[in-house]
Computed example of a mutant assay.
Amino acid sequence: MIGDSGTGKSHMLIALGTEAAMKGYRVRYTLATKLVNELVEAADEKQLNKTIARYGRVDLLCIDELGYMELDRQGAELLFQVLTEREEKNSVAIASNESFGGWTKTFTDPRRCAAIVDRLTFNGTIIETGTDSYRLASTRARAEEHIAS
């Protein structure tokens, strides 16, 4: 899912994961930065293979807020390993505020970025949520109601 902040990406990602879990699938939801931090810590503690395998076993891995922060080389490599472990075996759903062209800011190595986009989009569905923030629209509506009353 790709779209600006406030357009419902996280909401849809959580709903997708919840629905899958209710149907009996194993689901894991995480923020991209939290996942990368966990992988870096696992690498430091010599537990990386075990951690990657754990993420590889779930039926649906939901990664939220990809693209909000630039990943260093190690973080990008570790996330790439998780995605590669899941490739063509289990599903991944990602929410990002950046279009694929902007992912080079997150994954600073252009070849790795291209490989990640290639893996994620193969047999995938891309949902664009647009640019209109639901939160901003709600705030404006409340302000207009206040002025009218």
Score class of each variant (00 low, 15 high):
L79Y: 10
F107Y: 10
T104W: 06
L60V: 14
S99H: 14
A115E: 04
L31N: 13
W103I: 02
I52L: 09
D109P: 01
T104D: 05
Q47K: 14
E41C: 05
Q81F: 00
F100N: 00
A53H: 15
L79N: 04
V36H: 12
C62K: 04
G17P: 01
L78K: 08
E88W: 10
A93W: 09
S96F: 08
L48I: 15
A21W: 02
N97V: 06
D64T: 02
V40K: 15
E85P: 00
E85Q: 03
A42Q: 07
Q74L: 12
F100Y: 03
K23G: 04
L31Y: 13
S96I: 08
A43R: 04
G56I: 15
V92C: 10
R26M: 07
T84F: 08
G101D: 12
Y25R: 02
T106Y: 08
L61S: 09
K50N: 07
A20R: 04
F80E: 00
S96C: 07
R73K: 14
F107V: 05
I116S: 05
T108D: 13
R54G: 07
G67M: 05
A93P: 06
E98P: 00
W103M: 03
V92S: 10
T51C: 03
Q81A: 07
S99W: 13
D72M: 09
V58F: 14
K34G: 02
A32S: 04
T108F: 11
K105S: 03
K23C: 01
A42F: 08
V92F: 09
K50P: 00
E77V: 11
G102S: 04
F80Y: 07
R54P: 01
L35I: 12
A93V: 11
C62A: 10
Y55N: 09
R111I: 07
T18L: 01
A32L: 00
S99Y: 14
D64N: 02
V36K: 12
N49D: 02
E87G: 04
L71V: 08
A93G: 10
K23I: 00
G24E: 00
E19Q: 05
K50Q: 08
Y29F: 15
Q74I: 08
Y29N: 14
Y55G: 05
L31S: 15
Y25V: 00
T33A: 14
T108K: 15
D72Y: 07
W103E: 01
K50I: 05
K23W: 00
E45F: 05
E19K: 06
I63R: 07
Y29H: 15
A32Y: 01
I52E: 05
R112K: 12
P110N: 08
N37Q: 12
I52D: 09
M22F: 07
T106E: 04
N97R: 09
V92P: 05
A53V: 15
R73A: 14
Y55K: 05
K105C: 04
G67Y: 01
A93C: 13
V36T: 15
Q47M: 12
Y68A: 12
Y29D: 07
S99N: 13
F80R: 03
R54Y: 11
A114I: 10
F100H: 01
L66R: 04
G67T: 03
E87M: 10
M69W: 13
K105D: 03
L71N: 08
N90I: 01
L48V: 10
L79K: 09
M69Q: 15
W103F: 02
D72S: 11
M22C: 06
S99M: 10
Q81C: 07
F100V: 00
V36R: 12
A42N: 06
